[in-house]
Amino acid sequence: MSKSVQSLYTYTFLLPAGVIYALFFLAPTFLSFFYSLTIWTLSEWRFTGLDNFAIFLSEPSLVIGFRNTLVYATVSASLKVVLGFLLAAFLTSELRTKGFLRSLIYFPNIVSTIAVGIMFSSFLHPSKGIVNVLLALIGIDGPDWLGNPSIALLSVALVDVWKGVGIAMVIFIAGIQAIDRQYYEAARIDGASSFDALRHITLPLSRSSMNTVIMLAFIGGLRSFDLIWVMTKGGPGFTTDLVASIIYKQFQGGFYGIATAGNVILFLIVSAFAIPLYRIITKKEVDL
């Protein structure tokens, strides 16, 4: 009986998906390893070994992309984790406006990145932008958020947090709502404060949502392109270039081999973090 039921789950059902996914995602990924070792015009290629990678690792305007990508992903992901968790803890308590607040904070997620980038480019205008106008009201001379090389990258990372904290929040909310209420009652009877409950019940039992948020936010951060491209185009100079924006610049310049090497490097960076991060955080999960 069960053997013949298996015949209903025919592998032919995988064929349409397999063809599209293999052709338009897997094949280019495998090809990228080869073409990253060439000088490539799309119609012709010449093998050059690891030259493209050497250029990536020696050219200062390209090397800066590694540092920036790591800083950007770390800053935006850690803020999303911390703020997303606190917002979720607050918005799962008894509040009249919690439905409204959840929607409000989630809303930037469905607005396009380009639109958000344009909005914040004007808010962060050094003299007229509302951020600095408001800071001036309380006597602070606001900086040139996007024009000052030492803070431009962080400014964009903060905008990324503003746009993306809502998704972190709803993932945490789902996790917190799955926690058995009895733990909280027991803690209250034992005289624990609400901070104690947050620290010793909510936080450890949200571990699996936290893992999801860390993975999503960090890997999303490593791959970021559009927000930085709309807001700074990698400038001033190359100070906010990410690996993904460097790939685009090399592509625009017609350096297809170097652009593809950048793609392979991004692939390796993402895998280098994704695989161990996935192992570590799945091990630490609390069993109860």
Partner: peptide
């Protein structure tokens, strides 16, 4: 997780 390979 992996970014799509653009030029290929």
């Amino acid at each position: 997780m992996v970014p799509p390979a653009i030029v290929p």
